[in-house]
Design a protein around this nucleic acid. Structure first.
Length: 793
RNA sequence: GCCGGGAUGGUGAAAUCGGUAAACACGCGACACUUAAAAUGUCGUGAGCAUUUGCUCUUGUGGGUUCAAGUCCCACUCCCGGCACCA
């Protein structure tokens, strides 16, 4: 077609030239103000890029290109989250080494990304599976280990029977299935490596106040951390001088209503009381049964609670001095609070239910008017000794103090299990002496290489244990009888610090130099999927806070501003999936419509954060817009299009503002409005130059070609963003709505400086309005400058 | 159950501070160009009534505040995401 725009020729021409010129490399020596714009680096899957990647990457690319034109020194890097299970599972099936599949997937990703014209600084590319990178992942492990933030513990853990590895709590969904494999997770007791993220629970919660993140992401993280303020109280045990039961409660004000106690079946005190418990067989059986169940299984069995009373032992309510019975029940969780509770059946639904079933005493200690029990609200205390008559909120600290307890904050967050019984990950840099004690591998032996002489078949224990090379290496360096740690690290460890590496990707002395970190970090804008709310985004914050406390960095939050692109659904409104055969492949649409059109379409679909369905029909609208732009170059001459000038100035402002707030859909609308205006008459070279420059971040290839065609030197993407003149679009006159009783009855055009009186005068004269006002008394007149006049009759 | 977000034409959506709802597109219809089609261009397009200038209704449902509500308040329905025996 003669008139139409040849996207493939133009796009490949410029992609090649940009690469040769390293046009998008961040400038280390520049004095210009920095900006760090980051995409969540992808897992390089065999399936290649999907349209969801394109959405987020285009958003940051537009923003990045805009910032460069505005004179910022921008860091916009990309890399690969390259360790992980899909490649390893593929290796199990085919025998092809994961490194091979990963590297070929990366190659494919690079090709696809380059075809989209994304302006990454390729000189900073990283891959977490390279020894140069995982050397520092291991260094981070040792840093945490040396600072008592990494420990090994025999603990009940989540076991994924399909992927044959343990998982972090964050990788198990609410329904008890594994986030990755979909398998129902089993509970196992295993010796495992943990990071002590709980040390940072308070900071992780509090510092969410410091960041500009989506509200839902902040709340979800808060929920996960689960901060809860209450009190720790001690209940003596009858006949025991040394032992007490410590409980955590958010309602110390209801202490007088505590008529029994419940401990988790795994509570350590149980062993000490063993000799006094007369029904030990029954108790032991219950403990054994509940130990075999995961938390999910415990709660999945419905709200029907079970428990066993410890016969022969009693506790003492420290407020009433009454002797009260003790139960064990699996609705009390061993890992939360102190693993024991005081039960207040009158004012807690769970305790109420349990008390009804096991015939426990129920005593109301809060005044209330309505009958149905239990009452969980606040109110005036009763039956509470000297505290009766107090307001329950005030009584919290008073009662706590009275019985010698203390106020206490607890968190739901648990430590991060980082060991994996799989091959394709960074080896944990630990060796064991012949007695089995762990020792950190000295830094000079890093990177501690992932051995290659292993079969990948998961057999319920780590494939690295089958590596002869790894064992030989360990003995050679550390001595006979020494053995290597054979678990590898969760890939989320690799991604917890990658954004630091981009600042200084080739440094061999440090994970990144202090100067380069200071120059580039923190990240100014971070864009990526919302599915990482309690995974990557929590872990990366944890690592950052550790570096902060240890004095490596001066800031405590890694990502100042975060945005999530919404899911792109298939044309049928369902999720894209291979099995539904409704996946849109970016390659195909780029072939057909060009990268510029695909980029602009994805931005034009709707607000970045919204879930939106793909529409092949709508992409042709954007393509049509680009063709109109292409044809407009024929109308460029010496004379300006006078009628379009104010629109053009306004568009410069609007597009700039919208890019800064990531409202790309309305920016594109405005560009369309502007084009429609420019088409009305021939336009000047200056107008054309302005228009293609503000279009450049969206359609980088076509605008670069047009820039060259008007004989401009250098790249349009290095050209300055145009200035606008606010006077040019200041309205000399504005249309006013004329309302009678709030209903529009006519419109008039008034000069911008019009007086209220004159406006009212003219409004009354509008014939349709006059008819409505005829013979009626005007009770009130409302005048809103630039908008409307409203007569109330 | 609790927390967060949302619901606007046939479709994707827009609407600074409460101020003419539906911008910009898609689709559809008519016309122009063409032997014809495609492409392109012009006009029209929330619903209904009247068709001439107009009138009535309309932003999930029901109330309220206000001269004026998509926007603020109260109650509810449904959808999406998260958490869920967390004491």
């Amino acid at each position: 077609m003669k008139n139409s725009y040849d996207h493939s020729g133009v796009e490949s021409k410029w992609q090649q030239r940009w690469e040769e010129e390293q046009l998008y490399a961040a400038d280390e020596d520049s004095e210009k103000e920095k900006r760090y714009v980051l995409d969540m680096y992808p897992y390089p899957s065999g399936a290649g890029l999907h349209v969801g990647h394109v959405e987020g990457y285009t958003a940051t690319d537009i923003y990045t290109r805009y910032l460069r034109m505005r004179g910022y020194n921008v860091l916009h890097p990309i890399g690969w989250d390259a360790f992980g299970l899909p490649a390893e599972n593929y290796a199990v099936k085919t025998g092809i080494h994961p490194k091979e599949t990963t590297d070929s997937s990366i190659k494919n990703f690079i090709e696809q990304i380059k075809r989209l014209g994304l302006s990454y600084d390729w000189s900073r590319e990283i891959g977490t599976h390279t020894p140069e990178y995982y050397k520092w992942t291991q260094w981070f492990f040792l840093l945490l280990y040396k600072n008592n933030l990494a420990y090994k513990k025999d603990a009940p853990v989540n076991w994924d029977p399909i992927d044959q590895t343990v998982l972090a709590n964050e990788q198990v969904l609410a329904d008890g299935t594994a986030e990755r494999s979909g398998a129902v997770v089993e509970k196992r007791n295993m010796m495992q490596w943990f990071f002590k993220i709980t040390d940072y629970a308070e900071a992780l919660d509090a510092d969410l106040d410091l960041v500009d993140w989506p509200e839902s992401t902040i709340t979800n993280q808060r929920n996960w951390i689960g901060k809860s303020e209450g009190a720790e109280l001690q209940f003596p045990i009858v006949g025991k001088e040394t032992e007490v039961i410590t409980v955590f409660t958010t309602r110390p004000d209801t202490l007088y209503g505590a008529t029994y106690m419940v401990m988790a079946p795994e509570h350590p005190l149980l062993d000490l009381l063993k000799g006094d418990i007369t029904n030990w067989n029954e108790v032991a059986a219950y403990v054994k049964e509940s130990a075999s169940k995961s938390d999910i299984e415990r709660s999945a069995e419905g709200k029907e609670k079970s428990g066993v009373r410890l016969e022969g032992v009693m506790a003492i309510n420290p407020a009433t001095k009454e002797e009260i019975p003790i139960f064990i029940a699996d609705y009390v969780l061993g890992h939360y609070g102190t693993g024991a509770i005081m039960a207040v059946p009158a004012h807690d639904e769970r305790d109420w239910e349990f008390a009804k079933k096991y015939n426990c005493a129920i005593r109301e200690v809060i005044e209330r008017t309505d009958a149905p029990a239990p009452f969980t609200g606040n109110g005036i205390l009763k039956n509470s000794g000297t505290c009766s008559g107090m307001e329950s909120l005030q009584a919290k600290s008073a009662i706590t103090e009275m019985v010698g307890g203390h106020m206490k904050t607890t968190y739901r967050l648990r430590d991060w299990l980082i060991g994996r019984q799989r091959y394709w990950g960074a080896p944990i840099p630990i060796v064991y002496d012949p007695e089995g004690n762990p020792h950190p591998i000295p830094e000079e032996h890093l990177p501690w290489l992932l051995p290659t002489d292993v079969d990948f078949e998961p057999k319920g224990y780590s494939p690295l244990s089958r590596s002869k090379e790894l064992h030989a290496r360990t003995e050679k360096i550390f001595g006979t009888g020494w053995t290597p740690e054979v678990d590898t690290m969760d890939t989320f460890v690799c991604s917890s610090w990658y954004f630091f590496r981009f600042a200084d990707p080739h440094n061999e002395q440090a994970f990144a130099s202090a100067e380069q970190i200071k120059k580039w970090l923190p990240v100014d804008l971070y864009v990526g999927g919302a599915e990482h709310t309690v995974l990557h985004l929590l872990y990366a914050r944890f690592f950052t806070k550790v570096l902060h406390t240890l004095g490596y960095i001066s800031f405590s939050e890694p990502f100042l501003k975060l945005r999530h692109p919404g899911t792109i659904l298939a044309e049928d409104g369902r999720k894209m999936s291979k099995s539904l055969n409704n996946v849109v492949n970016p390659n195909d649409v780029v072939d057909q419509y060009g990268a510029d059109a695909v980029r602009m379409y994805e931005m034009f679909m709707g607000p970045l954060a919204d879930m939106k369905p793909w529409s092949t029909q709508n992409i042709s609208g954007v393509r049509r817009f680009l063709e109109k732009v292409w044809r407009l170059q024929a109308s460029v001459g010496d004379e300006a299009n006078a009628t379009a000038d104010s629109v053009l100035h306004y568009t410069v402002k609007k597009v700039g503002d919208d890019i800064e707030s990531q409202k790309f859909n309305t920016a594109i609308s405005q560009l369309m409005i502007c084009l429609n205006a420019l088409q009305s008459a021939p336009l000047s070279r200056a107008q054309w130059s302005t228009f293609i420059r503000i279009l450049a971040p969206f359609a980088p290839h076509m605008t670069e070609e047009l820039w060259e065609k008007i004989g401009e030197e250098g790249s349009i993407h290095s050209a300055p963003w145009p200035q606008y003149d606010a006077d040019a679009f200041a309205q000399e006159s504005a249309p006013y709505a004329v309302q009678v009783n709030g209903k529009v009855r006519g419109t008039i055009t008034l000069k911008s400086g019009v007086s209220e009186q004159e406006a009212i005068e003219q409004a009354k004269a509008v014939s349709n309005v006059a008819a409505y006002l005829n013979g009626k008394e005007i009770k009130r007149t409302v005048f809103v400058a630039g908008r409307l006049i409203n007569f109330v009759v």
